[in-house]
Nucleic acid binder design. Structure first.
Length: 820
RNA sequence: GCCGGUGUGGCGGAAUGGCAGACGCAGUCGACUCAAAAUCGACCGCCCAAAAGGCGUGGGGGUUCAAGUCCCUCCACCGGCACCA
């Protein structure tokens, strides 16, 4: 029978019997739980090989855990808000909701064809009011907690279209579609105070089982550095009276180099520079030039550039006046946007000082004179001379009294939430002429997206075209107010979706605490490495907020994370524009879902990239499945479903005992690989080895029917997570009851893991010189004696002095050390 | 530049300090066949005619009875971040 027919029949049966259903917390009855999660897909319309790989491997774990007896939650949903739907609306006139709906239906059908065991009763789509109302609810909770604020930040502004663009739409400073120039324009936006959790987000990385590279990326993203904030007083006569500032605050990790400061550099966006530029045309021109550069250009342009100002500051210890520059290498959004220039001990300051002829004063003696950027011993620093860098920092903070404090800064920035888009969660606030920005009352949720929208791709957010939507009342004074037209970043949607799966129909809360407590943390999360920072940081942050609101109890949502490698074609990522997309549907059409799954699991370790090009290997997967079917077929014909019970061990032939041993060692390996090592390629190779050994059992083996029955029914269950359709088919054929996917997972019997006889390798001076077979219970002395009399070892022992004989605990090897 | 990782046959890869190359793909030869496909069997790292033996996990060094695996160092490649004060 060909896979195309039986696979869909089995899928129907699974569906009819709700075979993938998972219980609520009340129904769990103290059973071991397992929450298997994959990153929710964007409904682009077609599944691709990356999805296939991700979902196959997740499904293997889910199916394995079910057979092991765990209650398994294995859901899928749709990350359904986002730009492509809006583009489809602009280009093809189809409403984003319609387009998205259709794509979800198409993709769901494809995923069902893969035989992935998702509990579709838990399905969610983030674009439904059912879901996004809880984004709004959470926003209001965070507002109450004071975790939401409004501030200005630059956006990509396309003056020709009058539209804000996403980073991905801007290429080399131009709108990718029209080529219109894009500039940076400050705009008032909503922010979430993620920085409040910076320290915890950093520290808790040590408590989770994640890949090193992802942890490293997150650490770098959070970017903690410890140092001090020091104040430099502005010489009053050197700046215009209009500025309120009397000091400049500077963050430094090297307060010990304070005596080496010869200038101060400020970001071109620093308020002090902005004010100074008002009365200094040359400075203004410099700042404008830097501001007009796109982010990309700024990174490419590596030369340090500065512009002098009339401002001077006083050195806090020596009271010497120091010049203040505006400089292109100072970032406004890190530290305080100001740097104390220490040319002798900072590479960038050094370059800058040389260019502008500023004094370079060495104040640190470093262990390696060629590396002046390191810490060392202070010199030229008056009473601090002779101190180590670390001692000096403490001493200087004390000396400077209120003018310096130890401080910690992070690269992590507060999360800019606002998007000037239609297809997203409306931010639940109104603008009242009297009371400013006000959150709406909880009772008004959901604030629904209006349908009467025209999508032109130009002008402000499409939401501004719906007057019905815009008209609102102020919750404070009930006077007319204008509804907020910004929508939320779609990362909000994906920051807590895994909790909504647990209670998808809840009308009172985003999810109940009981469900969250019962199912969290997620035991295994699989997804692409591209989400190593943004999504995985935001989701961790949201989870901590939810914990602090009292909705969840654990600190970290994802206990174990695996990032799967990409599926390539001809060395490139598959993409429509390259025309190298391999459609999973066509592969299933030709080979069946089981073959594709098997191949995906076998091709390479999960975290590595695989290239579809080199892999006629799927033929191998097909061959394997055919061999299994044929073997079971033959066995059933021969035995007519008579299944005598297994004879006691002494009555078995040597070959039969060997097969039984293999059956149990394979069971052990496959169990380990699926349970702890998450190494899927060796699951498949173990299955192949086992199949080879089962096939090799002699036709005239005395207990063949019973041994074969035992071997095959075990094999079918071991194969079931990877190739569930064929397993189901063969399970029925061999007389199994119920679904194979619900059958009990085979257990490795320790008695069968041992063998009566053992082959022992004899090494002499590290080289293999012979092998002997001994009873497994032979003593160490017997092993040594036998090894020394091994014929092939004799030539290497003659005329030599034996110095040492080592028998390692496994007993599988004996190492003899000899000397001439 | 900094951080993380990888390096094993023609290819994908296996190997918890204990027989390197499991398993598969490709290939070669054979069986079956009128023939082909499918299937089954054998071979399949390098040197030597072969056996015996030697060499061999990016290069060099070290620890160990024993190193693909641990340590040092260099090289190459991949990924991430990148003027982070």
């Amino acid at each position: 029978m060909n896979p195309q027919t039986y696979e869909s029949e089995i899928q129907k049966k699974w569906q009819q019997h709700k075979a993938f259903a998972s219980p609520t917390s009340a129904e769990m009855q103290g059973k071991q739980k397992f929450y298997m999660l994959v990153m929710l897909p964007y409904p682009s319309g077609r599944i691709h090989m990356g999805h296939v790989r991700n979902y196959t491997l997740g499904d293997m774990v889910a199916r394995f855990q079910r057979m092991k007896g765990a209650v398994v939650c294995h859901p899928l949903g749709w990350d359904a808000f986002g730009l492509p739907a809006e583009n489809a609306a602009i280009q093809h006139g189809v409403h984003p909701a319609v387009w998205t709906r259709q794509n979800i239906n198409d993709m769901k059908a494809q995923i069902i064809k893969m035989g992935i065991s998702y509990d579709w009763d838990r399905e969610i789509a983030t674009c439904f009011p059912d879901y996004y109302r809880w984004n709004q609810w959470l926003f209001l909770k965070m507002w109450e907690r004071g975790d939401v604020f409004r501030a200005e930040r630059n956006v990509n502004w396309c003056p020709a279209l009058g539209t804000v663009l996403a980073n991905e739409q801007v290429i080399e400073g131009k709108y990718e579609r029209t080529g219109d120039p894009v500039i940076q324009k400050p705009m008032e936006q909503y922010f979430l105070k993620i920085t409040k959790y910076a320290e915890e987000l950093l520290n808790d990385l040590d408590t989770i089982d994640w890949p090193d590279n992802v942890k490293a990326m997150q650490k770098h993203w959070i970017g903690k550095s410890e140092g001090a904030i020091v104040e430099f007083a502005i010489l009053p006569t050197t700046q215009s009276a209009s500025t309120p500032l009397t000091t400049i605050k500077v963050f430094t990790t090297r307060l010990d180099t304070l005596y080496g400061v010869s200038f101060m550099a400020l970001s071109t966006e620093h308020p002090l520079i902005t004010t100074a530029a008002e009365s200094d045309p040359s400075l203004r021109e410099f700042c404008n030039r830097i501001a007009s550069m796109s982010r990309e250009d700024r990174l490419i342009c590596e030369t340090k550039e500065g512009h002098p100002t009339s401002i001077q500051v006083l050195h806090p210890l020596t009271n010497q006046p120091l010049p203040v520059f505006a400089a292109n290498y100072i970032l406004m959004d890190y530290g305080s946007g100001a740097v104390m220039g220490v040319p002798a001990h900072d590479e960038r300051d050094n370059e800058f000082a040389k260019k502008y002829n500023l004094p370079i004063v060495q104040v640190i003696q470093t262990p390696n004179p060629d590396d002046p950027w390191e810490k060392g011993i202070l010199i030229n620093s008056q009473q601090f001379n002779g101190m180590t860098s670390d001692q000096a920092v403490t001493a200087m903070v004390n000396q400077l009294k209120g003018k310096a404090q130890k401080a910690t800064t992070y690269k992590l920035k507060d999360w800019g939430l606002s998007r000037q888009r239609y297809w997203g969660t409306p931010i639940p606030t109104v603008h009242c002429p009297q009371h400013g920005v006000q959150p709406v009352a909880e009772s008004q949720l959901p604030i629904q997206l209006p349908e009467d929208i025209t999508f032109s791709g130009i002008g402000p957010s499409p939401l501004t075209t719906s007057t019905a939507f815009l008209n609102a009342t102020c919750p404070q004074c009930q006077a007319p107010a204008q509804r907020e037209t910004d929508t939320m970043d779609t990362f909000v949607d994906s920051s807590w979706y895994f909790l909504r799966y647990l209670d998808p129909k809840n009308q009172q809360l985003p999810f109940s605490k009981a469900e969250a407590t019962a199912w969290l943390p997620i035991d295994l999360y699989i997804g692409g490495i591209e989400h190593a920072t943004a999504h995985l940081v935001y989701a961790r942050y949201f989870h901590k907020v939810l914990r602090d609101i009292g909705l969840t109890t654990c600190n970290e949502p994802f206990k174990k994370l695996i990032c799967q490698g990409m599926v390539l074609k001809d060395g490139y990522k598959m993409s429509k524009s390259k025309g190298n997309v391999v459609d999973p549907d066509q592969v299933i059409e030709k080979y069946g879902a089981d073959a594709l799954r098997l191949f995906m699991a076998f091709a390479a370790p999960i975290e590595k990239e695989i290239d579809w090009t080199g892999f006629e290997g799927i033929e191998g997967a097909t061959r394997f499945l055919k061999r299994v079917s044929r073997l079971v077929e033959e066995h059933c014909q021969q035995t007519q479903n008579q299944t005598p019970s297994l004879p006691p061990k002494p009555q078995m032939s040597t070959e039969e005992k060997k097969l039984m041993h293999k059956l149990h060692t394979a069971t052990k390996h496959i169990t380990d690989d699926l349970e702890t090592r998450y190494q899927f390629n060796t699951v498949i190779s173990s299955l192949m080895e086992l199949l080879n050994d089962i096939t090799a059992l002699p036709k005239n083996s005395p207990n063949r029917p019973s041994i074969m029955h035992q071997a095959l029914t075990t094999f079918i269950r071991l194969m079931s997570p990877a190739a569930p359709h064929l397993a189901e088919q063969l399970w029925e054929q061999t007389g199994g009851t119920g679904f194979c996917m619900h059958a009990q997972w085979p257990q490795a019997d320790p008695a069968w893991l041992e063998t009566d006889q053992q082959e022992i390798v004899i090494q002499i001076n590290g080289k293999v010189r012979g092998r002997i077979t001994l009873p497994s219970n032979a003593t160490e002395q017997e092993r040594k004696t036998a090894a020394l009399s091994c014929p092939t070892a004799q030539p290497h022992l003659a005329d030599k002095t034996i110095q040492k004989i080592i028998v390692p605990p496994s007993g599988k090897l004996i190492s003899i050390v000899v000397k001439n």
